Amino acid sequence: MISSNDLPDVIPVFPLPGALLLPRSPLPLHLFEPRYLAMLDDVLKTSTRLIGMVQPYEAPGGGGKLHTIGCAGRLTAFSETEDGRYMITLSGASRFRIIEEVEGFTPYRRCKVQWDGFERDLGAVEKDPNFDRKSFMEALNRFLEDRGLSTDWDSLREVEDELLINSLSMLCPFEPEDKQALLEAPSLTTRRETLTTLIEFALRGGSGEEVMQ
């Protein structure tokens, strides 16, 4: 478990469109680019083993920009394939706010970050006291059927509210900007409300971009 005192001022960041990491949730990743293999090597030498996941976007005039808010995960598992690639798992630790990008000699990007305002990420599992799970699961079932997707319903029915909502936020095929909205939700209840809105709007044939405006 990482405490607030362990959180570093500068972390490596992995900009990956559509990849969402949330506190207390696992994210499997496949690393093969040389710059990210170098990042993995450097991260393994640190005490916290943190990597920041952040959504990139194209700014007017070109250039890959980063959203201000991302989520850092602790490297908790990795294995090497025969051809030199790595399968890793990040366990969501805390969201952060980017202050500035750090120039340096690493082939991967690093950012100076601030952790203030996300203290609940390091705390206990969040609850959603007004969660109507039955209605939510019915809407989710329609959404998955509409997308031709399947899931393990027995497992979903048994998991706690936070793991259910966070896992679906991470796995459902929403646009990157929608994923960013789910990341920035200040509480589990707000994230569940945003997720529900996205599911219902998709079932009506709308786009997530219109929802988030």
Rank of each mutant, 00 (worst) to 15 (best):
L140Y: 11
W153S: 03
M53W: 11
Q55I: 09
N141C: 01
L21R: 04
M53L: 15
G84Y: 05
G62K: 04
L50V: 07
E162Y: 02
P129N: 01
S135K: 10
E160D: 14
P28K: 02
G61L: 00
L22Q: 00
F136N: 09
A77Q: 15
L29D: 01
Y86N: 00
R157W: 08
P56N: 00
S47P: 06
R95N: 12
E82V: 14
A38V: 02
H30N: 14
D121M: 05
E103D: 03
S155L: 14
D116I: 07
F96A: 10
D161G: 03
Y86D: 00
T46M: 05
A38W: 07
K112P: 02
L149A: 15
K127M: 08
R120G: 07
G84K: 06
K134C: 04
I88M: 09
S47V: 10
L29N: 01
L44C: 11
T106R: 13
I51R: 00
L66Y: 10
I51V: 15
D42W: 00
C111F: 15
L90D: 11
F118D: 05
R97C: 14
N141R: 15
Q55R: 11
V159N: 01
F105H: 09
E162G: 06
D41S: 15
D121F: 05
R147T: 09
R133D: 03
G148N: 07
Y36E: 03
V54D: 04
P34T: 03
P23K: 04
F136E: 01
L163A: 12
E158S: 13
